[in-house]
Design a protein around this nucleic acid. Structure first.
Lengths: 132, 132
DNA sequence: TATTGTTATACTCTATAACTATA
DNA sequence: TATAGTTATAGAGTATAACAATA
């Protein structure tokens, strides 16, 4: 049950990478862009907490995304220890593609599933996130 | 929905590592031991397909597990290109601990869930493994 | 003192390709 | 020719600890 979860993650990350192959993005880059896709500026800590990517890993991810012109880091005037991460126009375009690929996969996978099954899935996944 | 799956994987891998901290095993080592836990000899290809770990990664994983005395590689007399991976007695003991940690986490997570919810979870996870 | 984010180090995991031994 | 598994290389992800700047 737990191992099936891990296999599904492996597999869907692969499917996602294949559908986005032309963008040439690594897993965490895809994840981070999906997280920033709505365009709202965020600190580094926020996507780190949301995705489970460590801050030390995120530094490298953000370096690459910034170098490619997908986002900018600006000092937060309200707290000058932290940044405001903002997607550029090209970054928003790429993030939009990522979001669409994610929802496409979700749609494909859920085609044959009932609402009740989906609810059960959500409940168990939520419970797994609470395990300590 | 898909991102929640990935978060749950991240989180449960973490919980598993924490519960097995004294064993000092990396993620793929845990995964591989869980896969071999029943004691049946296997080729390298089999756990690779079952876990999604690449054969090139598995070589290093098996090297470490062999060096620690948890398994042996023996040439398969029936097909001398391939190995038979067999757990040693210490390897079986460690694999047993891994299995117990996995089932403990599953039990904890499913404590408040109905059979119907679990069935929905299984169905959706299976569907996600079929996405291409 | 605590927090944000970066840097440094060392190790694990992945992708790709080339390689050997065997089938 | 094809398959099982290893090796090599380079990049990506993690853990841990130390650090500067700010709160």
């Amino acid at each position: 049950m737990l191992l099936a979860l891990h296999r599904a993650t492996h597999h869907t990350l692969h499917a996602l990478a294949a559908r986005l192959a032309t963008l040439d993005l690594a897993g965490s880059e895809v994840n981070t862009l999906a997280n920033l896709a709505d365009g709202r500026p965020r600190s580094v800590r926020e996507p780190s907490a949301d995705t489970g990517i460590r801050a030390t890993t995120l530094t490298g991810v953000l370096d690459r995304l910034e170098r490619r012109g997908y986002l900018v880091r600006e000092l937060d005037p309200a707290d000058r220890r932290s940044f405001r991460l903002t997607l550029t126009a090209p970054g928003r375009a790429v993030a939009g593609q990522v979001r669409r690929a994610v929802t496409d996969i979700e749609r494909d996978a859920l085609a044959g599933q009932s609402g009740r099954q989906l609810a059960g899935y959500r409940a168990v996944v939520a419970a797994l996130q609470e395990v300590s």
